[in-house]
């Protein structure tokens, strides 16, 4: 089982109380990594769409600032499709975010690490980690943060589908992830064939694999080779 699956499985078995899945994920990330807090924001092409979860008050403040100001590490991470790492916000933040940086520093945030939650062009959100002291993430911590971002990506993808926020994990969330060209190509093809967005196309592909009891790569190959076609809004047969 890979690290991402382990994170998701731990979330499933933990007693989450009244907290939502994204809230539990932020709390688990903040507890597992040497950071002060973690926030999870929804993003679209237009910019921040709102806070999904925050591990503490300052994390919430950090997300609110970016939402209000329309700038900050999560905005850049989402638009650039890459992590934005500022271990010394006091040194590097000002020129980049003239409004966000002073406000964040004022609030007590000294280091920010923003990880985009994306599958190619499917932009779901950003996982923001912050620290109240400056300092870089070690390579090991960086890897762990990426694993938490992958887990968060998968959770958000399913939240976009109809999975209830506080319900049980969708069973195929726990399937191993596949980052293979055929899967992404098939996602694009299904989006056109079924006239849906890429996020929904990826869910259709995964759902089909799950219901057929086959691997997602095998189903993706059938799509790419033309042996399996999806259609708009009808029963997929």
């Amino acid at each position: 089982m890979d690290r991402v699956q382990r994170i998701l499985r731990d979330l499933e078995s933990a007693d989450r109380g009244s907290s939502t899945l994204p809230e539990a994920l932020c709390a688990a990330c903040a507890a597992a990594l040497p950071v002060t807090g973690v926030g999870l924001a929804l993003m679209s092409k237009r910019g921040p769409e709102g806070l999904v979860a925050a591990s503490d008050g300052l994390a919430k403040t950090m997300e609110d600032l970016q939402f209000d100001l329309g700038e900050g590490p999560c905005v850049d991470a989402s638009s650039g499709g890459r992590p934005v790492l500022h271990p010394e916000l006091r040194e590097t933040g000002g020129p980049r975010w003239p409004a966000f940086a002073p406000a964040a520093l004022q609030a007590g945030i000294e280091a920010v690490f923003a990880f985009p939650l994306q599958v190619g062009a499917i932009r779901l959100g950003v996982l923001d980690l912050y620290r109240d002291v400056p300092g870089t993430l070690s390579p090991q911590v960086f890897r762990d943060a990426l694993a938490f971002s992958d887990a968060a990506t998968r959770v958000l993808l399913y939240l976009q589908g109809q999975m209830p926020v506080d319900g049980a994990l969708h069973p195929d969330l726990l399937l191993p992830q596949h980052d293979r060209p055929e899967v992404h190509q098939a996602t694009g093809m299904i989006a056109v064939q079924a006239a849906v967005g890429l996020a929904e196309a990826l869910l259709l592909l995964r759902a089909r694999a799950f219901s057929d009891g086959r691997g997602i790569v095998a189903v993706a190959r059938d799509v790419v080779s033309g042996n399996l076609r999806f259609h708009p809004d009808s029963e997929q047969k």
Partner: peptide, 28 residues
């Protein structure tokens, strides 16, 4: 180190975008 990490992750995501577009164009 962090610039390296940012760029490598960015390149990986960029590749996925291109795969998705290939699929859309092929289906179209």
């Amino acid at each position: 180190q962090q610039v390296l990490a940012e760029q490598l992750q960015g390149a990986l995501n960029s590749r996925v975008v291109i795969e998705q577009a290939k699929g859309m164009l092929a289906a179209h």
